[in-house]
Write a protein that binds this DNA or RNA. Structure first.
Lengths: 291, 291
DNA sequence: AAATATATCTGACTAAAGTCAGACATCATG
DNA sequence: CATGATGTCTGACTTTAGTCAGATATATTT
């Protein structure tokens, strides 16, 4: 790494600024000023409360009012009083507004698709984008309880299995492992948590309950794009809190010494190593924690 | 990769847009409107011809004229007629303007430094940024003749040696290899080419001449951030052209089967495999091309 | 019920950005 | 040297974004 790190960050900034500038003008390309386009998009994304949009876009109340009136005159939105508080207003897209919003979506999709299509290694490009977006949005990673069979969870589990396949010398085959039943990782028996960053799942963990006082932590995974951001730590803390809420008294987990970051995390967060407690062929290290 | 690729690109766009927005407002933080700040920066970056700046920033001639007048009134720039064409004007920073430009530079540097400092793995972040910036600026990669001892060349060679160290089973030690003399890769004996993308060196190649009709191609390398963009191909084509210009009739090179992309490139671009022609311990494959 | 707080709207304003037509000087070409 | 093209400048204009001070209606608190 001889080249100046700061110069490289600034080169990156220049590159994306000109690209993003092109994106902005494409928004203007639909003959609508940026302010109005931003409000239309905010409404299209599901923000309906006018005050919420105002806070999100950082707009003055007077300006916001005029922008809404303009979109209404164009027939793109409708506003009504909030059912629970008649001072507030809620906005929603009309049929024409939905079409217009979709046109903006299509422009963005086309731009994104073009960028991928032009690159010789789209997977590498996506990995780099995920890394940067996760770094910039590190404060906006939220943990959500999810069904282990939902799309976000399946994405995480797929990546988790693929990574075990790469890291274990003899690969990894889920069918040989004791794949937990989804029902055991849903309330009231257990929970499944996904770490989401602006729509992209970046990590997961499962708490597999049995109905008794002992439960198992399974499937802890964090995307390579987000390692070092303390997401695993947050997932584990949230799992423990959920376990306490379910009346669980003892947590157990199995892992493998080929995953040293995981082992290190357990050792530094109050887990104690215990003898093997199952006959799964993959794990070689076992931990327990009393809550 | 279950998650929608296009959704991931758009997540990246959102993340950098808000970051770049924050950068823009920091420019406004110095009490100067964005237009004037952009012109000042363009001049600071060495663009002096007014027409060129106008084209670069996409400004109307009237607006440009007023922005220049404003900066002149502030005492930040001076404009004079172009020495070869009195219709055109050239602008340059005054001492006060240079200080003001430096203040903007420092803001940008601090922002870049902060981004790196906040990340757990700056090297990975930089690699991702290089990859994306190279992908976005792929059309702006230019080949330049350089001294093999200059900073850009040394950067490339350092990365090249490091990569050989990783790819060869027994590592790589330059001192055991036949390191060409810099003088042999400079005109009139040879050339050294560097592929530059907005200031960052992305690849290199050396033509090592001996004064005779036979010369050797050495040190072909392309940054992992820019693989697949046909830079190696362009470097080799430029090398051949330069060799022809130097009156060279036969090119040779040695390589290693641990570098299959390189071997594939040579095979598909008119090189023919020949018997070993040196006793360097590292190469195991040898090629020749008649010009 | 009165006082206060909140959310939106309206009118009057400013700053910045951008557009357009024409003036002017200079250069290139026949 | 006349003609047309080019680059900059000026004045008059519009659009967009944003600010601020009330006005109005509704909710919350005392």
């Amino acid at each position: 790494m001889t080249a100046e790190p700061i110069a490289r960050v600034r080169r990156f900034n220049r590159a994306v600024t000109s690209e993003v500038g092109a994106l902005d003008t494409s928004f203007l390309g639909r003959g609508r000023p940026l302010g109005a386009a931003r409000v239309l998009n905010a409404i299209g994304q599901g923000r309906s409360d006018v005050a919420e949009i105002r806070a999100y876009l950082g707009l003055d109340s007077g300006l916001m009012s005029r922008l809404l009136r303009g979109l209404e005159d164009e027939g793109l939105i409708e506003t009504v009083a909030h059912p629970e508080d008649a001072r507030r207003r809620v906005a929603r897209l009309s049929a024409a507004g939905a079409r217009e919003f979709q046109a903006y979506e299509n422009l963005s999709d086309a731009q994104a698709e073009g960028m991928l299509a032009r690159h010789p290694d789209p997977a590498a490009l996506l990995a780099a984008m995920d890394l940067i977006a996760s770094a910039l949005g590190r404060d906006r990673v939220v943990l959500e309880e999810a069904d282990p069979r939902c799309a976000a969870a399946r994405h995480c589990l797929g990546e988790y299995y693929a990574e075990l396949g790469r890291r274990f010398e003899r690969g990894f085959d889920v069918s040989l492992s004791r794949d937990p039943d989804a029902g055991d990782m849903i309330r009231p028996r257990g929970v499944f948590l996904v770490a989401m960053s602006d729509g992209l799942p970046l990590g997961c963990v499962g708490l597999k309950g049995s109905g008794g006082a002992v439960a198992e932590v399974k499937r802890l995974w964090v995307s390579p794009a987000a390692r070092g951001l303390k997401i695993a730590r947050r997932l584990m803390d949230a799992t423990e809190a959920a376990a306490r809420g379910l009346g669980i008294e003892v947590l157990r987990l199995d892992t493998n010494s080929a995953l040293p970051e995981a082992v290190r995390l357990y050792r530094t967060t109050g887990w104690t190593e215990i003898p093997r407690f199952n006959d799964d062929p993959y794990p070689d290290t076992f931990f327990e924690k009393r809550l």
